[in-house]
Design a protein around this nucleic acid. Structure first.
Lengths: 339, 339
DNA sequence: AACATTTATGTAAACCTTTACATGCAGAGA
DNA sequence: TCTCTGCATGTAAAGGTTTACATAAATGTT
């Protein structure tokens, strides 16, 4: 709509040079109070707003960071994003959120914005693309992994120890006397799915339990997949006595599947989730799960990214935050705490 | 990291002018195949990526649109965002998502990006700020309201008819014989909360039911508020026989409150929600609710915004999409459909 | 009074593109 | 041979800032 006033217009009206106008705005260099007054009035009168694009071009900074999530509808990630947004705001950045659907091309399209200088940094919440590509990218651009840790990689990251957390919650189920514990894992091409699967297997092994291939099935973190995979597990001849889902969302899908199958949780089958999303304590039965400090993961990852962008030393590049097991109703007897 | 190659570097290496390099990229003007070849090789060799900021400044377009939601953690909005993102991608735009927390200042900070030419358009999913401010903004910048319709305003919008939908679902409860129907409304400063409240009241009036002030309580669309407000309703001496919550998320909070209170849904108290979020059919009992075509709302609103940005005629400026009542378990008897 | 210092302001380059206009040249028609 | 047309390319302006450097005026120092 109507063409905007530029710094030149302001300068002309205030009878000064554009440099002076710029100085009034930045407040960096000294400027005569009277002149300053005149400039401010001119700005007011023309309803002047500086053009951000021009500033960006001049400074070669955009103050935009990109946060890529596999699925924005997934409540776990939206809480992480919230942490990212708040951390970004504090540091003076805006967040461009991209939902990748596990589609590499979509992810790469967002990452291209960095190459084009249209964003300054990247936070990746799940690394689904080829590791080589990521390593290469991280070497050239400021980037942080949130939620996920890539073994043997130097890329800065903030996450919990998914393996030990999964081991912990599986042990909880074992301690309750369960002998056939099924696992609904996340997408197998995602690092953290593997980590959680490993933790699960380690716990079984430590307890001398045999591994049953039938009891491990792959989902995609969606509620629909949790439902579908649980249905599948319920059709096994020797039913599992407990199901450990790699995410609360899938666990909620499983709850429904068990309910529809005419069985009760936790009496007939115990269920445990992962993430401790907001809703976990509201569904019935309330979910036993692993609490991830998701907000903090988001915040911390931005803080690291900011340091990276400023080329500051970031001390520890791999940050592992604490998780907490939260025991609620869905795992049955031996409750120690009510969410 | 290492300074980037510019179009000048490419031109120098290929022994042509920068104009020719630009032409090779755009493909608009004819250029000699041999020269083209040389330029491409130079680009390749220097690993050249054009600077998006410079392009943006030159064209005065950013291809970025801003989508403002009250709370990114709210699953209803994240599904709308998904529609917005997909619509935007199709039209060649990127989406900057902002969570406002009902904080006007945060919202205004995002809107300022438009004034600074750092974004081309705006989609507002809830209008919490003063109407005058919004009207003024909409007059100067391309903007569309999604989910919400402001009575008497000319601002383009895409939504359902919240009033009639609320009336419809309240009537459903009345038809089931409920006499004391409570309403957990959304924040009273949000237009659609008022619309839903009106629909609720109209239905009661049509059935000759008295209005009971005690039965209408305000929440903020969060699960916690649904829980808290339901608790409050359960402490009324003459208990409500049904609760209509203005969002599924609050309804889920209410389900838990009723459960914790030792009552059963729908036998003791019926519950109805609004939105039909993904999880609505998975919780137990599954929620009776109003299905909003949220993905389509997102998509359509981007389409309108794009027209607005191109200054094309957009025919109908106020679009009302169809909603559907979905009857599930939480409202009890008379089920016509299973989610 | 001459000079050094400080303060206020202006000039112009730089950031990296796109594009209107200008130029040069080859082939075609007279 | 001369002019006309059309293609391929170059030149330079424009987009709106910020900022290094230059200049000018005012103040302070001896």
């Amino acid at each position: 709509m109507i063409t905007m006033a530029t710094i030149h217009d302001v300068a002309r009206l205030a009878k000064v040079s554009i440099a002076t106008v710029s100085r009034v705005m930045s407040g960096a260099d000294p400027v005569n109070p009277k002149t300053q007054q005149r400039v401010m009035e001119a700005m007011e009168q023309l309803n002047y707003t500086p053009n951000g694009l021009a500033r960006n071009l001049r400074s070669l900074k955009t103050n935009v960071i990109i946060a890529l999530v596999p699925d924005i509808k997934n409540p776990f990630f939206s809480e992480v994003i919230r942490g990212i947004e708040d951390g970004a705001r504090e540091a003076g950045f805006h967040v461009l959120v991209g939902s990748t659907d596990g589609d590499r091309e979509k992810a790469k399209a967002y990452m291209a914005l960095l190459e084009e200088s249209r964003a300054d940094g990247l936070i990746l919440t799940t690394a689904q693309m080829d590791q080589a590509f990521i390593e290469d990218f991280a070497a050239r651009r400021p980037m942080v992994l949130a939620c996920e840790y890539i073994a043997g990689s130097e890329i800065p990251c903030v996450s919990i120890d998914n393996e030990s957390a999964a081991r912990k919650i599986t042990k909880h189920l074992l301690a309750l006397g369960h002998t056939r514990i099924a696992h609904i894992m996340g997408p197998s091409n995602v690092v953290l799915s593997q980590a959680r699967l490993n933790g699960y297997k380690q716990a079984l092994r430590e307890h001398g339990m045999p591994e049953d291939e039938l009891l491990v099935q792959e989902g995609d973190f969606s509620i629909e997949s949790g439902y579908a995979v649980a249905k599948k597990l319920l059709s096994i001849e020797r039913l599992p006595t407990a199901i450990f889902a790699a995410s609360d969302v899938m666990a909620i899908g499983a709850l429904r599947a068990i309910h529809d199958h005419g069985l009760r949780v936790p009496d007939d089958i115990a269920v445990a989730g992962f993430d401790d999303i907001n809703m976990a304590s509201y569904v019935s039965p309330a979910l036993t799960t692993i609490h991830q400090p998701r907000y903090e993961i988001g915040q911390r990852s931005v803080q690291m990214l900011v340091k990276l962008m400023k080329a500051e030393e970031l001390g520890q590049a791999q940050v592992v935050l604490e998780d907490t097991m939260i025991i609620r109703e869905s795992s049955g007897k031996g409750h120690e705490e009510k969410g």
